[in-house]
């Protein structure tokens, strides 16, 4: 991405001239205070937030010009994981995971219940198996715990057979042990499947232990970008604009 600026309709400038190169297979942690533009950064990558100026190339797509069907095809190749899981709670785990196949299936098939191809279901089962909750495949999403729901969301992303997974504060609504399990899952899909993973985190220790590269945002600007080894406490103090506090780490 080159000189990307994002300005919302409200006039807020969420990203200012951001330039980044992220190579395939990287495991990136994006850190910054609340309001620093982490979510905006992640959302520009799959076109949920339009860029105001600059250019952004993802895979073979040019985000500044992509529209309609092209944008949907791009999104089909990028998995996304949310802080609030964003599952359809009243339907089965399988139906939720199959949402990951939408962009790869004809509309008519996806509108009818159970009209997905057997191969699509196979992909969904494998995705659930990879995050260890295949046994819950027929359960209602609402009956699962938070950690299990987030794993369903990861399976939904995997089901897209993505080349890139974006995770926006994936563990912020989970308790510490579960947070580690979910971060482990993300690391595994990065290491075993070679999928690029970009994760927004506000906790320093999680960013350090799960990322290989850290990008620090402050007020919409990149103030740090480097390997995890070089991201010292002083670096975090610069990103946060204040000294590091105990509230900035998960502990455990």
């Amino acid at each position: 991405m080159r000189d990307v600026t994002v300005r919302y309709a409200s006039g807020v400038v969420a990203l200012k001239n951001v330039s980044l190169d992220i190579r395939p297979g990287e495991m990136v942690s994006v850190v910054g205070l609340s309001g620093s533009g982490k979510s905006s950064l992640i959302r520009t990558i799959n076109g949920l937030v339009p860029i105001t100026s600059g250019s952004l190339r993802v895979g073979g797509y040019h985000l500044e010009s992509a529209r309609g069907g092209e944008l949907r095809r791009l999104r089909g190749e990028i998995g996304m994981i949310f802080q609030g899981f964003n599952l359809a709670k009243r339907t089965s785990v399988l139906n939720n995971v199959l949402v990951g196949r939408l962009a790869h299936t004809t509309t008519l098939r996806t509108l009818l219940l159970g009209a997905y191809r057997a191969s699509d279901r196979e992909i969904a089962f494998e995705a659930l198996n990879r995050v260890g909750i295949l046994s819950k495949v027929w359960d209602r999403a609402s009956s699962l715990s938070g950690g299990q729901q987030q794993r369903v969301a990861i399976a939904r992303a995997l089901c897209q057979e993505p080349r890139l997974v974006l995770a926006d504060e994936p563990v912020a609504s989970l308790d510490p042990p579960t947070a580690h399990e979910v971060m482990d899952d993300l690391r595994r899909i990065n290491q075993d499947l070679g999928i690029t993973v970009i994760t927004n985190l506000h906790l320093i220790d999680l960013a350090r232990s799960y990322g290989t590269r850290i990008i620090g945002l402050r007020a919409g600007e990149v103030v740090f970008d480097g390997p995890v080894e070089s991201a010292s406490d002083a670096v975090f103090a610069k990103i946060y604009g204040r000294s590091v506090e105990s509230a900035d780490v998960l502990g455990l």
Partner: peptide
């Protein structure tokens, strides 16, 4: 939430 998720997966 689910609307955002379906949009993000290219629906």
């Amino acid at each position: 939430g689910p609307i955002e998720a379906t949009r993000a997966s290219g629906g």
